[in-house]
């Protein structure tokens, strides 16, 4: 008990405790807590630049009638709903394959699949923009093996631009998630798999009935991390589609819209802050839902 430690030794102990944690708490208070509260305050104000006045819920009303915001929200949710499951499943399959000690060269496979994690988001976006150019290496390869007859307009067609963003993010982050699963799999006793194999349980059933339930906490963790990441998507979209949000805003995300509202158009800090709070609410809501869903399935 802390109270039992009262007295000079307890005080010394307590003061030291505060001294060690004070710098970080001060920095987080100044550069996270203060701005996030300020942002909330701002979202109830409107006006240009620094000339702001209280506007009540006007910004929230404006959200509903803003087709660009609706577009950005739909796009962001599309990325989230489509990309996160694809990536998690892919990472799980790769991890369970590479966890098998009989696989030859698994260190090499693991390193290769993890390699995309070392690139900066900007660098790989730029690379992908070049690879997916109209006559670029991807279209010419697809044409050569007969998958397509005319080049896919990756960068200029609203649908394909979205597909490109999803492909790019999946390339960058699958290996990252795989590493988490591999680390978790190492803590599982391999004999469980041996017994299941001898009993004639096929590989897919071992994956569904052994691997996934045992990895549930890690899957939850990576899903939350990926959710937060996807909802904040900016660098890739900005660099793949020239900073505008692609053909007819097809790839515009919430973060990019906030950036445009603040630094590209006539600055409207109040409204931009309201849009940013949509992300805050979504992140909190989805993280809560994911924890809740995981707990329900436990019962």
């Amino acid at each position: 008990m802390v109270h039992a430690r009262r007295g000079s030794i307890g005080r010394y102990y307590d003061i030291n405790g505060w001294l060690f944690v004070a710098p970080v708490l001060g920095l987080i208070g100044l550069f996270m807590i203060y701005p996030i509260v300020w942002s909330l305050w701002m979202s109830f104000q409107s006006g240009r630049g620094m000339m702001m006045k209280f506007a009540g819920f006007a910004n929230i009303v404006r959200l509903w009638n803003d087709p660009v915001f609706i577009k950005a929200l739909t796009n962001t949710m599309t990325y989230f709903v489509v990309q996160v499951p694809i990536m998690i499943v892919l990472a799980l399959i790769l991890a369970s394959m590479l966890n098998n000690p009989r696989i030859i060269g698994r260190g090499l496979f693991r390193t290769a699949i993890f390699l995309p994690c070392v690139t900066s988001l900007v660098a790989y976006s730029v690379l992908f923009k070049g690879m997916f150019a109209p006559d670029g290496v991807v279209n010419s390869t697809l044409a050569a093996i007969g998958v397509i007859s005319s080049p896919i307009p990756w960068l200029t067609h609203p649908f394909w631009a979205k597909v490109l963003v999803i492909i790019a993010i999946t390339w960058r982050w699958t290996g990252y998630n795989m590493i988490f699963y591999l680390a978790a799999l190492q803590n599982i006793d391999r004999s469980i798999y041996e017994v299941a194999r001898i009993d004639g349980v096929p590989a897919w059933a071992r994956f569904i009935h052994i691997t996934i339930p045992l990895l549930k906490p890690v899957i939850l963790f990576t899903t939350v991390i990926s959710t937060i990441g996807t909802l904040q998507l900016f660098d890739e979209v900005y660099n793949l589609t020239e900073g505008r949000g692609g053909p007819s805003n097809a790839t515009l995300t919430l973060s990019l819209y906030i950036y445009n509202l603040t630094f590209r158009f006539m600055p409207n800090f109040g409204y931009a802050a309201t849009v940013s709070y949509v992300i805050v609410v979504l992140v909190a809501l989805l993280a809560f839902l994911q924890f809740f869903a995981a707990r329900e399935r436990d019962k």
């Binding site: 701005p35 937060i228 906030i258």
Partner: peptide, 26 residues
């Protein structure tokens, strides 16, 4: 360890969920 610091620590971990977009204007 103390009870107050433990509370602050848990509150601090919640800041992991704050998106940067909501901080950049302030």
């Amino acid at each position: 360890r103390s009870r107050q610091r433990e509370r602050l620590y848990r509150a601090m971990l919640l800041t992991l969920m704050i998106p940067f977009a909501a901080l950049m204007i302030p």
